[in-house]
Design a protein around this nucleic acid. Structure first.
Length: 566
RNA sequence: GCGCCCGUAGUUCAGCCUGGAUAGAACGCAAGAUUGCGGAUCUUGAGGCCGCAGGUUCAAAUCCUGCCGGGCGCACCA
């Protein structure tokens, strides 16, 4: 914000006079509002008695008019307080910007590609994929708010043993239930994928238990690779069901992909890249396989092409990077996956660094944690898999049971928002303990609470006879401490968005929105009762309008819908 | 054994990258106010050797080292 800039620059000038050299001044927002709007520890860094140094700085500082006071505190911090006028001006500025408040040009014209979700056809979306999706979508939107040119990508494992297991299971189930492909094809999308899910579990279970089945599935796997006539139709139909159902889910989640990459498309290219670089000495041969000797650089040694000459995940990943670049010459490439493959990615990036240092330098891997459900148990063996769909439906079910008057469509938005918020409010990389009770609670640090507060602002504005557009702020009014407290808080929004984007931390945005919502509710709860005397109507409406916009924009950045009525 | 991540209030988590003031929230708990309820709302409060031990620093939850405890990964699955 240029408010902050002007203070910093003038302060640096003062410091230069005192210290005789240029020193960068870091202006921070103190944790306690009693410590002012901005604070700096520059006096502590210059040497000498910090309090004396601070006094000297203050003596020569030509304060911008927005600064009303500056004090020395503690060991030598300089605490700066802004004038009411400055705070009110920032409110008006935010109001003027409206929908643009929080947006910036920080990433203007930067091309950013984000790969996330990475779920596999023939299997249902698991809660882990859901988590990846939620993070990826939010990061995409954060970059979009900075005017980056963003493309969303998904990489899907459409081939491999898991597919063969599912296809095998399909055939068995179809025979048992005397159902044909056409018949199944008529069914609803949800039923079809439930069938696929069942088929996969059957195949996976029997694969473990029965040697004959194991051989059969292995043979089937090869046939799928070769697109053998025997399996072509069933494979392609199953894949179609899967991919169609994914779209239904993406629509529900509010996400949409620009690029779809299939693992089967990377095999050939991956092999070529590895073989070429084998000659250049990037890779080595060992036990008939081609490996990357990661141990030499403190990483794991990994196989890129196995002894049968087939590319592994790593080789395909090497092919994916240039493929993406060809489709969209990016400045930044972000890949979101579970943190269990962090070590693999380090190896892949190291290999890529030797092959194409530029691409490697643009790539950033983000590993997220696992979802823990304390109220239930995880069991993938029995078919009691925790699917994303189940999680969303369960949340919706619980919500409608408690709030029976809520419209179904709204309930779904709130349920999805509740889950998204619960997952985004903790830092990426940590495991998340998910609790329905806490996530769905309309009180406390939850998605529904933010959505509720947003809806409240909209209803306040709708009920007010006075149009906010015409609201003129009487700057002569004396604001009380509460009012100032909210003003001191909300104008940091653009800064928070910026920080969340740069460091991939949507959780700080959650914290901010929650704090703001709390302050607003506390303020409003009082004044709808007391009314008029202590605060001006214009001020309340203007504030409501700005807070509403921030909550709306903030929720959008998190990928959460903001209904105007709950 | 080696590598990576984690350990903060009863619980779930921020804060650690970039060291600063009294370590913050939420839920839960306790007390009070109000109320047409054992519900709702508001106010206040209690609750912390920041895993342990060293080191660096004017200053350490934060940086470094060692240890203890937990999770994950360590060559032809993704």
């Amino acid at each position: 914000m240029n408010l902050q800039e002007s203070i910093r620059i003038s302060l640096e000038k003062a410091v230069e006079t005192v210290a005789g050299r240029h020193v960068e001044v870091a202006l921070e927002h103190p944790r306690l509002s009693a410590h002012g709007d901005f604070t700096t520890n520059v006096a502590l860094l210059l040497g000498g008695n910090p309090r004396e140094v601070a006094e000297k700085i203050l003596a020569v500082w030509e304060k911008p008019s927005v600064v009303v006071s500056a004090d020395i505190a503690g060991p030598g911090f300089i605490n700066i307080r802004l004038s009411e006028r400055a705070l009110l001006d920032s409110l008006k500025e935010a109001f003027r910007l409206g929908e643009h408040f929080g947006k910036s040009q920080s990433f203007r014209k930067k091309k950013v590609i984000i790969e996330y979700t990475d779920q596999n056809p023939f299997k249902e979306m698991h809660v882990g994929h859901l988590y990846s999706n939620i993070i990826g979508e939010s990061i995409s939107r954060l970059f979009e708010a900075g005017e980056a040119d963003v493309r969303r990508a998904i990489y899907q494992g459409d081939i491999g043993l898991h597919v063969a297991k599912a296809v095998w299971g399909m055939r068995v189930l179809m025979e048992e239930q005397k159902l044909g492909l056409e018949e199944l094809d008529q069914k609803e999308s949800r039923e079809r994928v439930a069938f696929l899910g069942k088929a996969y579990v059957l195949g996976a279970t029997r694969f473990e238990d029965d040697k004959n089945v194991q051989e059969e599935i292995t043979r089937l796997n090869k046939k799928i690779y070769e697109r053998d006539k025997e399996v072509k139709e069933i494979y392609e139909t199953g894949r179609k069901w899967s991919l169609e159902d994914f779209e239904r889910m993406y629509a529900r989640l509010g996400t949409k992909f620009d690029f779809y990459y299939l693992e089967s498309g990377m095999s050939h290219k991956g092999i070529n890249i590895v073989r070429e670089n084998l000659k250049k000495g990037v890779f080595e041969e060992s036990d008939n396989a081609i490996i990357f000797p990661g141990e030499k650089v403190g990483l794991h040694t990994r196989v890129f092409i196995n002894s049968l000459g087939l590319p592994t995940y790593e080789a395909k990943e090497l092919a994916l990077a240039p493929t993406k670049y060809k489709d969209f010459p990016y400045d930044v490439s972000i890949i979101v996956t579970g943190n269990d493959i962090i070590e693999y990615f380090k190896v892949i990036l190291k290999a890529l660094e030797k092959i194409d240092p530029e691409l490697a330098g643009k790539t950033r891997h983000i590993g997220h944690g696992m979802i823990r459900l304390p109220e239930g148990k995880m069991s993938s063996r029995t078919g009691n898999v925790l699917t994303a769909e189940w999680l969303l439906d369960e949340a919706k079910k619980r919500l409608t049971a408690t709030y029976q008057e809520m419209e179904k469509e709204t309930a779904d938005k709130v349920a999805v928002g509740a889950i998204k918020y619960a997952l985004l409010k903790v830092s990426i990389g940590q495991d998340v303990s998910f609790s329905f009770e806490k996530s769905l609670n309309f009180e406390g640090d939850s998605g529904p609470y933010i959505q509720y507060t947003h809806a409240r602002t909209q209803s306040v504005l709708a009920n007010s006879k006075q149009k906010t557009q015409n609201a003129k702020l009487n700057v002569k009014i004396k604001l009380n401490d509460e009012e100032l407290a909210i003003l001191r808080y909300f104008y940091r929004f653009p800064e928070v968005v910026q920080q969340a984007t740069e460091s991939f931390t949507p959780n700080i945005l959650c914290t901010f929105l929650f704090d703001l919502a709390q302050r607003y509710n506390a303020f409003y709860n009082k004044h709808r009762i007391v009314d008029a005397e202590n605060t001006s109507r214009e001020f309340r409406l203007l504030l409501t309008s700005v807070v509403g916009t921030i909550l709306k924009n903030g929720l959008w950045l998190l990928g959460i819908q903001a209904p105007t009525k709950l």
